[in-house]
Computed example of a mutant assay.
Amino acid sequence: MRFPWIGRIAGVVAAVLVQAGAGLAQQAPLPVVTIGTLENGTVNWELRTIQDRGFDRENGFELRMQPFAGNPATQVAMQGGQVDAIVSDWIWVAIQRANGAPFTFWPYSTAVGGLVVPADSPARSLEDLEAERIGIAGGPVDKSWLILRAWHRQQTGRDLADVTQQVFGAPPMIQNAAETGQVAGAINFWHFMAKMQAAGMREVVSVSDAAKGLGLDPGTPLLGYVLRDDWVAANPDLARGLARASRQAKDLLASDDAAWQALRPMMGADTDAEFAALRDGWRTGIPPEGPVDAGDAQSLFSLLADLGGDDLTGGLTELPQGLFWQGE
């Protein structure tokens, strides 16, 4: 006796099993890329956009952010293999690489600050601030301070370190000192500068313009994603996927004002003016696509080393080979 319904049931069961298998394959977990970040760092704006817009999943990975309290903590986490990447400047990466750590760098931002004064200040140039007190975030080897020193020395033959009084401190302290008149001018990190200008302070000179005056390429990014050579070699698709996702987020945030509304709660903007200044400042720092030009970076490094010395460079004179990942 034949039972044709058995064949039909078997066919249905087979189809269900095939669909179930396909569904399980689609739900297979993606590899995770963990990036160590500062709790309030501006890179979080890009990374959150990557997550919210699904640019990570589109490029074959799941992005996770691991917050840390400060830059030293992120660097320790990177050195200890607790994270796959962090954001730092390539001078730190160069020192680590020269000392045997197989770190490499991919551009994140060209954003730099400048020197600002109160709106009613008579100062129109760095010369006008000679013999005055200048507040500087980041310490004596802050890159913005060194570039402005080099540019002023080229223009006048005088070193700002010799002809001004410097007050070094954390960015919020320098902001407060400038706003309360404790210093005549201030050099701060770009996002603090954006807030200071939104509150009415005036820029005397930007680090970007000073770099141009020194014959440097202001498009050379100082900040970037730090990766390990062995991680890139073992996970080339993940590394390229991270680079693509980063560019997708940058392209979106560069052109779509509405995309910023989701980020506003994490930007620390107290006013619409601050929000707009932070957004526009971040956009200005979007680097060109592709790796850093090693020759341009060496020119900048040599200039910074001249004034910053071993405290900045760790004794390096030449940037190590392989410092800048080529994205391949």
Rank of each mutant, 00 (worst) to 15 (best):
F168S: 08
A184V: 02
S206W: 10
D209V: 14
A262L: 02
D209L: 11
P320K: 03
G21Q: 10
A161W: 02
A178M: 14
Q51P: 00
Q182V: 05
R228M: 08
D217Y: 05
N40Y: 14
E39K: 13
R133H: 04
L242D: 01
P29W: 04
P288Y: 02
A77K: 05
V76K: 12
W145H: 12
L307D: 07
A269S: 04
D270A: 14
L303G: 12
Q321N: 12
D272T: 05
G11R: 10
R149Q: 13
Q51V: 13
S125T: 15
G181E: 13
V16S: 00
G113T: 10
A294K: 08
V93Y: 11
G241F: 02
L252R: 08
E127I: 05
R8H: 06
P320M: 03
S299Q: 15
I134G: 00
A259I: 02
A239N: 01
V32E: 09
A249P: 12
R247E: 14
N99I: 08
V12I: 04
T37Q: 11
G54N: 07
M1D: 14
L252K: 04
F55I: 10
P140W: 05
P265Y: 03
A69H: 10
F189S: 14
K250N: 12
I86F: 07
A137N: 11
A243G: 03
A259H: 01
M78N: 04
L146G: 05
E46P: 00
V226R: 05
R2I: 14
Q261Y: 07
L319N: 12
A233H: 00
P265D: 03
L17V: 11
A170E: 14
R133Y: 09
G100A: 12
E274N: 06
F275V: 09
L242Y: 02
V204W: 06
G309I: 02
I95L: 09
A178H: 04
L115I: 15
V141S: 06
A28W: 12
A28T: 14
G181P: 11
K212Q: 09
D230K: 08
G181M: 11
A123G: 05
G241V: 02
R57K: 15
W106E: 07
A194S: 14
A170D: 12
G314M: 05
V141M: 01
W231K: 03
A262Y: 00
D128F: 07
P288Q: 11
S125L: 10
A15M: 05
M266A: 06
V205S: 10
R133D: 11
S144C: 07
V292K: 08
T37E: 12
I86V: 15
L238M: 03
A177N: 07
I9S: 03
V232T: 10
E46W: 12
S302T: 15
F61I: 02
D229V: 04
Q75Y: 03
G36E: 12
D52L: 13
G7T: 01
A198N: 15
R153K: 09
R48L: 08
G322P: 04
A94Y: 13
G290N: 04
D209G: 09
R240N: 05
W45Q: 13
A85T: 09
A243F: 03
A259Q: 02
S246M: 07
D84E: 05
L38E: 14
